[in-house]
Amino acid sequence: MASTSTEATDPYCLREGESAALLRGHGWQRFVVLGDSVAEGSCEPTPGYSDQQWADRIATELDAARPGLAYLNLGRSGLRAHEVRGTQLAPALAFGPDLALVVCGGNDAFRSRYDADIVDAELTAMIVALQQADADVITVGMFDVSYSPAVPDALRPGLRERMRLLSARTAKLAERLGTVHVHLTDHPLTADPTLYSIDGRHGSGRSDAIATAETLRRLHSHLAGSAS
């Protein structure tokens, strides 16, 4: 089912001028992204919405608010959490970021033998290392892809349980470690089929537009908290 909205009219997306207001005065100069296909960018185009991927959109808005942003996206499709840490953490640290987005664990949670403790340990190692290098870290509880129309009915309950466990565990980790956490799992539209691609694993242009809006709003809250 196609969305009847466009990005300009969608109440869950950024309004004209909102991004500039949210990011006004930000000091980030070096933005790095670590993760899987969600980080790399694999959303399915949606008529009426930008084709630019989520992480790239964040970088574009940060640069618009403060030109000269250095941006490195290390995300690669298909990686599990331990593979993200093993292949991306070292180059991320070498980049010298002051802002980092870490999004992974979804490929682990797609497996029936998902081990939440192992994923937590991998996420913790990445977050702590980046924070020790003086980077603010963004973590994410993603939209619940078990609602995708492409997911077979027989697989929905197990996938939903694992995806929500990943989200809940990541939220607790974020609270403990003090990350900028973007919680999308319980978004009002998480069960809307227009948020998901036909492959049953990824999002649409609409979901990336909404995720961008929510991420910038959380970054604004972080900036406001830091200034107070």
Rank of each mutant, 00 (worst) to 15 (best):
F31D: 02
A92S: 10
V33N: 01
P45N: 14
V137M: 06
D144N: 01
L74D: 08
L219Q: 01
E122N: 02
V38F: 15
E61F: 11
R176P: 01
P45Y: 13
M163C: 04
E161L: 10
G75I: 07
F110M: 06
A213D: 07
V137F: 09
S146L: 00
A121N: 07
T215I: 11
H220A: 10
D186M: 12
E175M: 14
A133C: 04
A2P: 02
V84L: 11
G27S: 13
A94R: 15
T190H: 04
A109I: 06
D134M: 09
V128D: 02
T185H: 00
T87G: 13
R85V: 08
M126N: 05
V128F: 09
D208Y: 15
S112T: 00
G105F: 08
H181M: 08
I58Q: 04
T124H: 12
D115T: 06
R156V: 08
Q131N: 03
S5R: 12
S3Y: 04
R169F: 09
M163Q: 06
H220I: 05
A59D: 08
V119S: 02
V32Q: 02
R76L: 15
S167N: 05
L216D: 02
G205C: 01
Y71H: 08
R24L: 14
S112F: 09
F31G: 00
Y71W: 11
M163A: 03
R201L: 15
A133W: 04
P97C: 09
R76M: 12
L123G: 03
R66Q: 15
D56N: 03
R24P: 06
N73H: 09
E44D: 11
Q131K: 06
A90Q: 10
D117E: 08
G158K: 04
G205N: 06
V182H: 08
E7A: 01
R85S: 05
M142G: 04
A65E: 11
A100P: 00
S19V: 12
G203P: 02
L99D: 05
L89H: 05
I127T: 04
P97W: 13
V32W: 04
Q88D: 12
G48I: 15
G158W: 07
S3F: 03
T179H: 04
H187F: 02
G78W: 08
E18L: 13
M163K: 04
R217Q: 10
S77H: 13
L79S: 03
E214Q: 13
P91R: 13
G27N: 10
C104H: 09
I210N: 07
R111L: 05
A224W: 13
C43N: 15
R169E: 06
R162V: 01
V137P: 05
M1F: 12
P149V: 15
L34N: 05
C104M: 14
G141P: 03
P149E: 12
G225V: 04
